[in-house]
């Protein structure tokens, strides 16, 4: 009679969903911040973050793991923000109060908040399609070629939008300075 032996089973491979959830968890801060930079109001952050997760999960099989995740995530966040803004078509709460704004250390928190608020308010003056490129390039350090891939745009369009977005940002910051103070 053949002898029965226990064969150690191979370590369980994470499922596709687990992998995706893990990536989402790792990049959660980045996703929330990107949505904020793209003008998502505080009240909608949670919902849009979930939409990002849903889109990520649905496309996880097609995502090329050899490429960096953040530009890919930003592309998703950008499309979802654009759709959401098209739906709203109106200006709503943006940076009115952030959770950090109400922290117990008023001086430091206030200063940081004001600086961040200043950048976000200036970014908001730039139309979304150009803002997305500026954020990716000048804040996330994504190469122009990768931006073009993530947003499905021709290289030339990325360059021209980046140029215009920078001018718009400078103008917005100048305007803020003239009006004396941040939002």
């Amino acid at each position: 009679m053949a002898e029965l032996r226990l064969i150690p089973s191979p370590p369980p491979q994470p499922t596709r969903d687990e992998e995706c959830l893990d990536a989402f968890q790792r990049e959660l801060d980045y996703i929330y911040r990107s949505l904020r930079r793209l003008g998502t109001p505080m009240s909608e952050l949670d919902d849009l973050a979930q939409e990002v997760f849903l889109a990520l999960q649905q496309n996880w099989g097609e995502y090329d793991r050899t490429r960096p995740l953040r530009p890919y995530l930003f592309g998703i966040a950008f499309r979802i923000s654009a759709a959401s803004q098209r739906k709203r078509r109106r200006e709503v709460a943006f940076g009115v109060v952030e959770p950090d704004d109400l922290g117990p250390n008023p001086d430091e928190a206030l200063q940081t908040k004001q600086m961040r608020g200043q950048v976000l308010a200036a970014l908001e003056q730039i139309p979304l399609k150009r803002r997305a490129i500026l954020v990716m390039h000048d804040l996330d350090d994504v190469a122009v070629r990768d931006i073009a891939t993530a947003l499905s745009l021709p290289l030339f369009t990325v360059y021209s939008r980046l140029r215009k977005a920078r001018k718009e940002l400078e103008a917005a910051l100048r305007r803020q300075k003239r009006e004396g103070g941040s939002l």
């Binding site: 959830l21 989402f24 968890q25 959660l28 801060d29 980045y30 929330y32 911040r33 930079r37 949670d46 973050a49 979930q50 997760f53 849903l54 999960q57 959770p99 950090d100 940081t112 600086m115 961040r116 200043q118 950048v119 976000l120 200036a122 000048d138 804040l139 910051l173």
Partner: peptide, 26 residues
Amino acid sequence: ILERERVIPPLSPTVRARALAAARAT
């Protein structure tokens, strides 16, 4: 000015937990 916005602030544990719970529920 942009440098200040480069740093990504960590989410509060509450928001993080809520987001992950919602993702798991999804």
